[in-house]
Simulated assay, not measured.
Amino acid sequence: MAGKKVSLKAATNELLEQVNQLYPTGTVFLDFEGDQVGYVRHDQAQQKVFPGGLMITLTDLTEPDYTASHELLHLLMLLQGFPQIFFQLSLGEDELDEQMMIMATDLYNVAMHTVVVDEQRRHELITPQIEAEYLAGIHATLSDEGDQVDNERTLRLLTLLDALVFYGDHLDQVQADLNQRYPSALKTAQALYAQAFDKAVDSPYAMRRVIVRLFKLFDEQMHAWQLPPLHNTEFTTVSPVLSERQLRLSVKQVFEIFHSDMQNRESGKRAYVGLRRNDRQNSFVIDAPQGDTAAEFVSLYAQPVQEFLDQHGIPYIVRK
């Protein structure tokens, strides 16, 4: 590693060790670059897979323990079986696809941060100083609201949703500042937060529920603002969380497969999207069955769920 030498707290090193015990294809390393900008944001690290492992590079060293532990906890959650998101569909325009993926990832991370932040606080990796630097990061990201509607509404909403997760019970320390600078966005974010996080996020199943709920609530807000919705329930694949019983049911009982107007990003062919019947969320994407006949779809629908998912290499999580 060619970066700077940084001494990390024992709790951060323990997280790195935990990750390496589970990481399946080599070793996870931390590298340190950059200076100290004076605030913390979640864009201050990068990940790069290389032969033999994964490199997590911190690109700002304002709070290396906070940033490193944040990245490690995200990775640890995936290794422990929390839902992932995948982008298997394309609208046919690279720039639009990229915008959709960024916003979907932001919403997904808001949900995942409920666990990440709890763990960081449990390990005493979030201090009053870091809380102040997080607020400074918000100030560096957003301009203050004015009297006129501007094009930052969506960014403010995403940023403040994440802030509500980060501050949690400590929100009273910064609420006056946020309310003075972003009164409308804060009110909207608090309303969405109350609806999305009405139950504890204490399992992969509960996490998936919150992710899907955020996707839907965000689109409802886009409609209210007369802005284009993201349609993440179709565009973004969320790995399904299924019980042993559901895995034994037929595909037809658990999923509805429909032809999307979007293409399969990998194959470029017509995409068929598998929606969970209970929440209408994209759970997998496949190409049209060979021949594309009604008989082949009847056969596909009759397969046991686990057999179908395994046959197509579709990742899923078994609900405990």
Score class of each variant (00 low, 15 high):
L249G: 01
V174G: 09
N278L: 12
Q190N: 10
R276D: 11
S267A: 07
L178G: 11
V210N: 08
F235A: 03
A288L: 09
L178S: 12
A271H: 03
E296F: 09
S203N: 10
V210T: 11
T236Q: 05
P183D: 05
Q226H: 15
S243W: 00
H223D: 15
R208Y: 00
R276P: 03
R209F: 00
D219S: 09
P289G: 10
R280K: 07
Y272W: 14
R245M: 12
F197H: 08
K199S: 15
L275F: 15
K199C: 11
A189V: 04
V305H: 00
D292H: 08
S299H: 11
V210P: 10
Q306F: 00
E307G: 05
K187F: 10
F284G: 00
V174E: 11
I211F: 07
F308N: 01
R245D: 14
R265N: 13
Y301I: 01
L186N: 06
S299T: 15
R248G: 00
V254G: 00
R265P: 05
S184W: 07
A185S: 08
G274V: 04
L171F: 09
W225A: 06
L247E: 00
L171D: 07
Q221H: 13
V273L: 03
F284V: 01
A194K: 13
S203D: 12
N282R: 06
Y205N: 12
R245A: 15
L230Q: 11
R280P: 02
Y182T: 03
D219A: 09
L275R: 14
V201N: 13
Y205W: 11
Q195A: 15
Y182F: 15
Q175S: 12
K252A: 10
R248A: 02
W225K: 09
E256D: 14
Q221E: 14
Y301G: 08
I211Q: 14
D198G: 12
R276N: 10
Y167S: 04
D279T: 07
V241A: 03
P229R: 02
T236Y: 04
S184P: 04
P289E: 14
E234S: 09
L309A: 01
V210M: 10
W225T: 02
Y193A: 06
D169E: 12
R213G: 02
I257K: 05
R270P: 08
L275Q: 13
K252H: 12
T237P: 01
K187A: 12
Q306H: 03
Q221G: 05
S243C: 07
S250Q: 06
Y205S: 13
V254K: 00
N264P: 08
